[in-house]
Design a protein around this nucleic acid. Structure first.
Lengths: 226, 226
DNA sequence: TCACACCTTGACGACGGCTTGACGCACCCG
DNA sequence: CGGGTGCGTCAAGCCGTCGTCAAGGTGTGA
């Protein structure tokens, strides 16, 4: 189920978009200003953001930059201003699309499908990977041992493992892991990472003391080695 | 260099777009109808297609479907028709964006940047550099030896190597290296550079005593020679 | 209400990277 | 020919980071 965060300061538009999106089987969260948008994006982790530029508390471009600082979730901008300069600024700040009011709901939904289709392509990797004697099935949310048993992971462990596995062989910085799992305000709590990486290694690595797949890059981050 | 295929049946628009895109350092190919567009896409492998829907020989949606049959290159549609139904059809056929004529060239260029920025994430173009028997993958933050082993670099070593590799063949002054890695107040601690360059050569060069890629320019700085 | 699973927080020893100093060598210049 | 400068190398100490253990806190279901 695709999660959408809709940000608009006009309650009736907010409500209308919410109804239309929910009717299309999207999971919808609503925010009325930029601050709420950034907070909800951090806590709710949407797969798509629909953002009105005319917010009371922040400039729309600031909201885009606030999001782009730690996530590359697709952003569709709604705006009453049709000026070329506004569009360029929003798009270059990191927005994926720019729709001028008034717009048809059919068009917006088509653009939602277009950007989510493209963003979904990124996550097309093989959803099952092997770590030691275990096979991790990201799609099924399950870890099976070769002898038939299965390993239980807590939500936080899953979240962390998911990020690492989706970047096979690549270094993932501590900052990014903390951002993605715990939220933007956790940037220095590296003890969380130490704690949960140790748990993942205990559950998945053959020799937790000498990990072969969940590797530490001292001072930089962690890496999943297939 | 990003390759763009522009498809339009009006020669003057074709020419104007070509000039504007080439001025922005895009490599541009032009097609005047749908058939030519599909042929050139196959032979020319563009990174982006800008497609006018009003073509003489084929319906625009057919062109999109013809492309989507074998590639997911980003497609930006240009159209004189502002109808909601046209937009929905084009977007659902696989287009990434839909711009209604008349449009500003600045807006189009911003949309070009937006879709190529997102598509670039999928391509995972890995800038891999070779040093001796090692390949350095800057994106993955990893160094692999040809026999399969991998070399571990400390954060400072990475930082230094990154700067040198990003300026291939060019001399980088000691001052700039110190400034970028250690900070503005370190401008004369050249012993740091000697220390870390020696470590990098030990880890990467085949013969650390006679470096072939990490070269010293006495009195001036260092140079990465690919 | 209790039990349990999960998350958070603190503490501590071990290890390794960073810093710093010293030395030898090659080269340049007076 | 002798002094100076810049570079490469080695060694040692400091300090931050990592892995680990343990305890406290919180929410949920029985």
């Amino acid at each position: 189920m695709t999660r959408v965060l809709v940000v608009d300061d006009e309650p009736q538009i907010l409500r209308a978009l919410g109804i239309n999106l929910r009717a299309r089987r999207y999971e919808v969260a609503l925010a009325g200003d930029g601050g709420a948008a950034l907070r909800m994006a951090a806590s709710h982790r949407p797969d798509l953001v629909v953002l009105d530029l005319g917010l009371p508390d922040m400039d729309g471009v600031e909201v885009i930059q606030g999001l782009r600082g730690w996530t590359n979730v697709p952003i569709i901008v709604l705006s009453g201003r049709a000026g070329s300069q506004d569009k360029v600024e929003a798009l270059d700040a990191g927005a994926d699309d720019y729709v001028t009011k008034p717009f048809g709901i059919d068009e917006l939904l088509a653009r939602v499908r277009a950007v989510t289709r493209r963003a979904a392509g990124v996550g097309e990797e093989a959803p099952v990977v092997r770590i030691g004697r275990h096979s991790v099935d990201l799609a099924a949310h399950a870890v099976r041992t070769d002898d038939g048993g299965d390993v239980r992971l807590t939500p936080t462990e899953w979240h962390l493992l998911k990020i690492l596995v989706r970047n096979p062989g690549r270094l993932v910085s501590q900052r990014q892991l903390l951002h993605d799992v715990w939220g933007p305000q956790y940037q220095s709590e590296t003890n969380y990472l130490r704690q949960y990486l140790a748990q993942l290694r205990r559950k998945l690595e053959d020799d937790p003391a000498r990990p072969r797949h969940l590797l530490t890059e001292p001072g930089m981050g962690y890496r999943f080695q297939p």
